[in-house]
Simulated assay, not measured.
Amino acid sequence: MNLKEHIRGIQDFPKPGILFYDISPMLAHGEAWKTAIERLADAIRPHKPDLLVGIESRGFLVAAPLALALGIGFVMVRKHGKLPGDKIAHSYDLEYGTDTIEVQADAVEPGQRVVVLDDLLATGGTMAAAINLLRQVGADVRAAAFLVELTFLNGRDKLDVEAISLLSYDS
């Protein structure tokens, strides 16, 4: 199955000059979504993760069903102020300012093997921040995985773990 047939390009979203790669058609097509999860599971399985970590918010859509398929746990990395209880925070630089992400303090045990997921790899800044945050809490980050990678933005260059992508776009 050609999964690219289930990704829609939307011009000028969220702002002029941006081509947004929309995974909604894939999510709405049962066989395509199942195929994507199966292919990611096959790619991630060799890393033997104890947990999958999804980055807010579309990363949740990928990581949660994938964790279920692999029979392992799922943990959320969210923007500041969105998680209850004790949290560990990590701030990082954006093109114009800073942002902060958090994980619940007891979500990952030191030494647990994790793979971090998001729907799309663009510049790599948020994924690199999530990897750093998880290392702060003692995680053994094995890989980062994505449905889509925009290779022309060189986001994988910011990652010091293997980057796994099902689909890539060169422009």
Rank of each mutant, 00 (worst) to 15 (best):
Y96P: 08
I164R: 00
L83N: 12
A122F: 15
P84V: 14
T126S: 15
P25G: 04
E149S: 07
F20H: 14
E149W: 06
P16A: 07
S168P: 01
D99P: 10
Y92K: 08
D93W: 03
G111N: 11
M76R: 14
A145H: 01
G17Q: 05
W33M: 12
E162F: 04
T151I: 13
K15F: 12
A144M: 03
A122D: 15
L70A: 08
S57W: 10
L70K: 05
R45Y: 02
V108S: 04
K79R: 14
E95W: 05
I55K: 01
L19E: 13
G73H: 09
I10G: 06
A139P: 02
T100W: 09
E5Q: 09
M1E: 06
E109C: 07
T123S: 13
M127K: 10
N132E: 15
E31Q: 13
R39Q: 07
D50I: 00
Y96E: 15
Y92P: 09
V103F: 04
A145T: 03
F74Y: 13
G85Y: 14
A64K: 02
D119I: 11
Q136K: 13
R8N: 08
H90T: 08
A143V: 03
R45S: 05
V103I: 15
E102F: 04
S57P: 03
R113P: 01
K79F: 14
A128G: 12
I7Y: 05
K4A: 08
L167V: 05
A63V: 06
G17Y: 07
R156W: 09
G155Y: 13
L121G: 04
D157S: 10
D50Q: 03
Y21H: 13
A32K: 05
G124F: 12
G155M: 12
L68Q: 10
L94H: 09
A163Y: 05
G97K: 05
L94A: 06
M127H: 10
G17L: 08
G85F: 15
L70P: 03
V62E: 00
S57I: 09
G17N: 08
K34S: 02
V77M: 14
L159E: 09
Y21F: 14
E38W: 02
P65Q: 07
V53L: 10
K15V: 12
Q104I: 11
A43V: 00
V137T: 11
V115F: 00
N132C: 15
T98H: 14
A144R: 01
Q11C: 06
R39S: 01
P14Q: 09
D140Q: 11
L159H: 07
F146R: 01
G155R: 11
A89Y: 01
E162D: 14
A143I: 03
L68F: 12
D50L: 02
G81F: 13
I88H: 03
L166F: 04
